[in-house]
Design a protein around this nucleic acid. Structure first.
Lengths: 227, 227
DNA sequence: CGTGATCTTGAAAATTTTCAAATAGAGTGG
DNA sequence: CCACTCTATTTGAAAATTTTCAAGATCACG
């Protein structure tokens, strides 16, 4: 499927938004959209022909598997986010859909030549990269919360912000893109502890649960408390 | 002090190494070297005239202070690393010297115009930025180790790699740039737990301590074990 | 050689993990 | 469409780890 930038849900926020319409259309001819359903792999670590992509819809996780086969979640990607190795000769991590997702995919060689042709694109990707760095550091900060409840609260808040259309404001209600096991993995806790923490946050009136994935924020400030 | 790229200890690894000699000298005229001693602040969060810098020598920490005044360490910067906000109008984090350090500092406006003049520099910074991202993700991975001993072991190993001249090989002996409190902060543990973990790693023959900061790696593989 | 700060160590308290089982949800085939 | 099955989630109680609180030891430095 060829690209339809005119209807792109993230055309104002993604890296390619810095291009002129003509430049963007030229890049668009090299790319295509792709749909993934939950669990589908976009890139696998070691792929020699790894591409790169902008996420339009849904959510992705970037993971690494250690020698014992344990999965570690290194990053989450939300709409308008960019993923893919631009310089390494092969993919360093797995990138997997957490929910049904739509992406705009480019071969790395095309993206690299676009970078050379359009300095503004390199700058935009640099900017995005700094945002990724901030996001990674935000995840790091989750680990320094003292209690398990505070860690889970902070993660839920971060997920609410990622799920929101407007940056800087958490979505009032959304579905967790992560299983309890994935949340536990990210926080260095066990599934049971995460579950108990959510139960407690609900009991304390910080949020409400609908089913096992639905979350409604009642008192976002309480979620951020470091206790 | 003006720059002397010819004697720069990281001239083969830093972002500016992609420039031709002439380009680099042009950039060098805009920058200067600076020395910091342990504890000195390079940038403070909120600085309007924040600059950016390449680290030549020593070690830096990037920190954030939350509402309660607690410090969170978001990143460590080792020689050849780059720091500074290129796009935000002011510094987002504090950057502080962990040991006596030397840096190569540029005003942001000069660096931004250099980026526009030299696309290769933008690409090199993008590459560096991706490395920063990998580093941040490596720190994230520390949190997913199950036990406190494994977390501390992994952090010591990461610090040994940062202290090494050759990438990918840990230094056999080095001084910890972090206090116990800073290590505890990064790992979400207490000072006492970090201290006990080091004692145990020494008792188990993974490392040897000299004074409170000196570390000699005896069995690096054991430091990486996730137990 | 003090002096203050950092680091180590010990024992009780608190939190988290582990182990075990019940409940709820999602998907499948009749 | 419903019953069935499999997986994910929740909950409980004991075991293990970590934190807290309290001292003592060591180090850097004037």
């Amino acid at each position: 499927m060829t690209l339809a930038c005119a209807t792109c849900p993230v055309r104002d926020r993604a890296a390619c938004s810095v291009l002129t319409e003509a430049e963007r259309d030229a890049l668009a001819r090299a790319g295509r959209t792709r749909r993934l359903s939950r669990g589908e792999v976009l890139f696998a670590a070691g792929d020699a022909d790894a591409a790169c992509a902008t996420l339009l819809d849904g959510a992705l996780k970037v993971t690494h598997h250690d020698a014992d086969g344990n999965e570690r979640i290194l990053a989450l990607i939300h709409p308008a986010g960019f993923t893919g190795e631009l310089f390494a000769p092969f993919a360093g991590h797995d990138v997997v859909a957490l929910t049904d997702s739509r992406l705009c995919v480019f071969a790395r060689r095309d993206m690299e030549s676009a970078l050379r042709a359009h300095p503004a694109l390199a700058e935009a990707l640099l900017r995005r990269s700094q945002e990724d760095l901030h996001a990674a550091r935000a995840l790091l900060a989750l680990g320094s919360n003292r209690s398990a409840v505070a860690k889970v609260g902070a993660l839920v808040l971060a997920l609410a912000e990622g799920a929101s259309d407007s940056p800087c404001h958490p979505a009032a209600a959304f579905d967790l893109p992560l299983t309890r096991g994935e949340m536990a993995n990210m926080l260095g806790l066990t599934i049971e502890t995460v579950s108990r923490a959510l139960t407690r946050l609900e009991r304390d009136g910080a949020l409400r649960r609908t089913g096992s994935r639905g979350i409604e924020l009642i008192d976002p400030a309480r979620l951020g408390e470091t206790i």
